[in-house]
Design a protein around this nucleic acid. Structure first.
Lengths: 349, 349
DNA sequence: TTTCTTTGTGACACCGGTTACCTATTAATA
DNA sequence: TATTAATAGGTAACCGGTGTCACAAAGAAA
């Protein structure tokens, strides 16, 4: 590594010299500390503005023991999900000094806690954003709390930690899907859910079950299979369902990735969507309108969640602990009905 | 910002004390400088290993004037593309101390150069990876060279800067697509290319044209339209082509996103793929097998490119400038034939 | 043996900010 | 008016590493 001197860079000392004060006073102005005279503050502020001076983040990171990095920690297998959340976060970080760094992880690895903790120890990020399912690992976030580290979790149920959490009403969203299918007249309804590791799996399944129950329908165990939130698992699970002895007339998939897999399986089985099989996805990612027929899906505002999470993080320093949110922010979901759902053939006389 | 003392952290001073040398000597060992006695070096290395000491990146960043950040700079509108490249880069960075930060940008903004340069000035990233089309902005990279900043460009043609470049043979890839369609017997072939701003647009179009020429075919101007590398633009352009007076029997799209748009447009026009219309995409992103029929596409190893780019960057310090690559690394593309292409109806007697 | 290199190591300043602590005003209270 | 408290600002050490340079010890050449 070769050192490179950049004469053009302007430092806090330059500002101090130009305004005739000590660098400490400049530092006070930068950090909006009190005990700086009004005229002095104004003078310095103007000089800072004129020169375009920006404090060196590395130096601040060293002194503050906290860098300007915000890490997105994820183990979510859906690239669509990750891409969207990134966009939201980036939007919120625009114009700030914070940078988004990516931290994929794998809960199956034995030392994954240690990986994340050592990242935190070494890089002292300003904060972390946890996406399901890592976000649901309370053992992990507890370790972070001990380190007094900022973080926000995206979760599908209340983890009892409102100041650090954005909650999505997954169960309610799934309930909407159930009602929609029941109202269309379906009675044999299949469900492909995600891995048990994900809380969203339980929430969505429970909500779906509750929605069916409102219409006196059951979520039959033999029509319920576990996928991996991936396309391939969707194909596989749907194939299983479609070749079982009681073929469902509708399938609700735990996310869009798997729902797209259902499309493929239906095709291979010679079934038409929605005539022979209605399909409902979850997330409402862009793919829903790129396949045919456009898919009915529960809209999950992933991008907005990323935005909110980042904003929450950035502001977490501004409010003293006792003024922070004590009730969780809940994001409502809604169903977008497209052309992948219709009444079952038996009712289409 | 509240300071937080972390007693658990071990510093270079601790190592120095434990090994009975000055911290400068420890620093030498860390940085593999010569002129450290063999036994001293071994002693210190062992102590470092035993304690699990890792030098503080913020402090090093300050002293080195270079952080451990690698920025991915992109303006590419395809989320699939970005997601894949990220995965490759992250893979290469795994186990290193480098972190991936995201830097989306917009070439249409007047101060986008300044945005990137000010990011570089402030955060002193170790290096940058440029993805098309930003990668083709030679005015921008020239400014970076003046700052002695590491970077790698992904490009579809030789930008005359082999040490900083990974080149893809886009023209050759497009030629394969042309030959395939020509061999199937198509003569009226449409092309939806990307924005003129992207060099890949020109390369792919030129390669496609050359491939057709081998079979005595022309790329007719009225069957050539400009898209934006996005799904929606694909739908729009394909609709135009399919409703023109000379309807093509095959369409080659500049990327998969647009090719998927062609699928939708064909559907709306009541055309079957591949019977009424053959479609070839470019990139071979996962979406090609999620739609029906599975799409023929030119395989563009995006993920590998990301991996290679990151590796190249990481190693750029290890080789002295005069030993660096002088001929560009060229990545070959190949055509993956699936079910979206067949002979035109007229030849299917 | 003396002198010139080479090699190994430490002292100290520095990177660009910040905190802890101290001093000099000025305003408020007695 | 004397005393106290609050306010404005400065000094020095520090955050955790690195560059520069001086210097002693060891090996090579004279």
């Amino acid at each position: 590594m070769t050192r490179q001197r950049d004469k053009g860079t302007i430092t806090i000392n330059d500002i101090a010299r130009m305004s005739g004060v000590s660098k400490k006073t400049v530092s006070r102005v930068i950090n909006k500390s009190p005990s700086v005279g009004a005229k002095t503050r104004l003078l310095i502020e103007n000089i800072i503005k004129d020169t375009g001076f920006v404090p060196n983040p590395q130096a601040q990171a060293l002194a503050f023991r906290r860098s300007f990095l915000i890490a997105l920690v994820y183990d979510n297998p859906s690239p669509q999900y990750i891409a969207n959340i990134q966009r939201g976060v980036l939007k919120a970080l625009e114009g700030t000094r914070y940078q988004l760094v990516l931290r994929p992880c794998d809960r199956a690895e034995p030392d994954y806690h240690e990986n994340i903790l050592s990242f935190v120890r070494q890089h002292n990020p300003f904060g972390l954003i946890f996406v399901p399912s890592v976000s649901e690992d309370t053992a992990l976030t507890q370790k972070l709390k001990d380190k007094n580290c900022h973080f926000v979790r995206l979760a599908s149920l209340d983890l009892g930690d409102p100041a650090h959490q954005i909650m999505t009403a997954d169960a309610e969203g799934a309930k909407l899907a159930a009602r929609h299918l029941a109202q269309l007249g379906h009675t044999k309804i299949g469900h492909i859910h995600g891995p048990e590791l994900f809380q969203s799996t339980h929430e969505r399944r429970a909500g779906f079950k509750a929605g069916l129950a409102e219409f006196g329908l059951n979520l039959e165990p033999e029509l319920t299979v576990e996928g991996a939130y991936t396309f391939n698992s969707g194909v596989k699970c749907a194939t299983t369902l479609l070749h079982g002895k009681e073929r469902p007339t509708a399938i609700f998939a735990g996310n869009d990735e798997m729902a797209v897999g259902v499309y493929l399986a239906a095709r291979k089985a010679g079934l038409q969507i929605p005539e022979d099989l209605s399909v409902v996805g979850f997330d409402d990612t862009p793919v829903v309108s790129r396949i045919w027929p456009p898919m009915t899906s529960v809209k999950f505002p992933i991008r907005d969640l990323g935005f909110d999470a980042a904003k929450l993080l950035i502001n977490s320093d501004k409010l003293p602990p006792n003024e922070r949110r004590t009730s969780p922010q809940i994001v409502e979901l809604n169903l977008i009905i497209r052309e992948s759902t219709s009444a079952p053939k038996s009712k289409m006389l």
